[in-house]
Simulated assay, not measured.
Amino acid sequence: MPIDSNGNYTLPTTSTAVAGELIEASKHNSTCDDFKQAFNLSLWRDGRAPWTGDHNANGNTIANLKKISDWTTQQAIGASDADARYLKSSGSTLIDGSAAANSSNAAIQNIQVVDYGSGSGGTNTYLQITPPGADSFAVPSLGMVEDKIAAEAQRASTIESNLQSSLNGKQPAGAYVSGQGSGSNPTVSNIQPVNTTAGAETDTSYLQVALTNGKAFPIPTNQNVAAQIKNYVDPKDYISGTAPGIKVQAFTFQITQDSQQVPFPQSFSSIPLAIILTPTTKDLDLGSGDPTTWTKTGFNVTHFGGTLNQIVSVIAVGVG
């Protein structure tokens, strides 16, 4: 090889001509062949021949490379404009380059910044990436992402507010109502109707209000309140209630047989303290006058003649 690893050319030892001596064809031709090999290794300045191997710049800089105006020509670019591993841009210049693709990643034809804003990018800033032969796609900036999140949060808040207004205090079937208490008032965890029939109220219907402290209280419906008032004012065949724990029952019964068991309208918790009869005749015996024959559910009377079917008034006092 006529050129060493440092690029130095050395003439063949047989190529030196001596004055007065004949030039031999074998020596002359071999020297010309050596020149030919050396010239064939040269890098032509007009770019007529491609490189056949990697070039070592030995730490030196390739200066004055042409600026790129048409990326489709795949021209070489200066180190200040690009690195072989990355794609770089200056200002809003559309850049082009190829990236090695693996089985799942495609090469990139170009990248450009759209609607650039200051800092992390404006609310409409994004990267537009175009793979070769494919549709471009956008990569949003931080500013754009934050703006979209804020907009969606506001939209959700508006929808919730509009929905609440449209409900106007009404709730879908089976739903609970919740609410935050103001001041020292407790917070309501849920409200639900109890003792309804197919959604309609009954004499025992009420709203159960549950609190977050684990307690609950009922609110009777209109029909429940009306039923309780009616039950209170309607005539009864007994009267109940005096001092705490004491029950007084006033009622009537009809004598129908000589020996008759009479039940109390409501049972006492134990044997009554006293029973007073007011018959229309004096032919009655209250269990032979022996209280031990009384029970908490009733007593026995004996009829000693006279007219049956007479009405007898009773007052019984005992523990409720």
Rank of each mutant, 00 (worst) to 15 (best):
residue 5 S to H: 10
residue 5 S to E: 12
residue 6 N to E: 02
residue 11 L to G: 07
residue 11 L to K: 04
residue 15 S to E: 09
residue 19 A to Y: 04
residue 20 G to F: 11
residue 21 E to R: 13
residue 28 H to A: 09
residue 33 D to E: 09
residue 34 D to Y: 07
residue 37 Q to H: 02
residue 38 A to C: 07
residue 45 R to N: 06
residue 57 A to Y: 12
residue 60 N to I: 05
residue 64 N to M: 00
residue 67 K to V: 15
residue 69 S to Q: 08
residue 76 A to F: 10
residue 77 I to P: 02
residue 84 A to C: 03
residue 86 Y to H: 10
residue 92 S to G: 15
residue 93 T to F: 11
residue 95 I to D: 05
residue 95 I to H: 00
residue 96 D to F: 03
residue 97 G to I: 08
residue 100 A to T: 11
residue 109 Q to F: 04
residue 109 Q to D: 02
residue 117 G to R: 11
residue 120 S to Q: 12
residue 126 Y to I: 06
residue 128 Q to S: 10
residue 128 Q to M: 09
residue 133 G to N: 14
residue 134 A to Y: 05
residue 138 A to I: 05
residue 140 P to R: 04
residue 142 L to I: 08
residue 146 E to A: 11
residue 155 R to E: 05
residue 159 I to K: 12
residue 159 I to S: 07
residue 171 Q to N: 05
residue 176 Y to A: 15
residue 176 Y to D: 09
residue 181 G to P: 07
residue 186 P to A: 15
residue 188 V to T: 14
residue 194 V to A: 07
residue 194 V to D: 06
residue 196 T to A: 10
residue 205 S to D: 03
residue 207 L to H: 02
residue 214 G to E: 09
residue 216 A to P: 00
residue 217 F to P: 02
residue 229 I to F: 10
residue 238 Y to V: 08
residue 243 A to N: 11
residue 251 F to K: 13
residue 252 T to V: 11
residue 254 Q to A: 13
residue 269 S to W: 02
residue 272 P to M: 13
residue 272 P to H: 06
residue 274 A to T: 12
residue 276 I to C: 04
residue 277 L to H: 15
residue 277 L to F: 12
residue 286 L to W: 07
residue 286 L to I: 14
residue 287 G to Y: 03
residue 293 T to M: 08
residue 306 G to I: 12
residue 308 L to Y: 11
residue 310 Q to H: 02
residue 320 G to D: 14
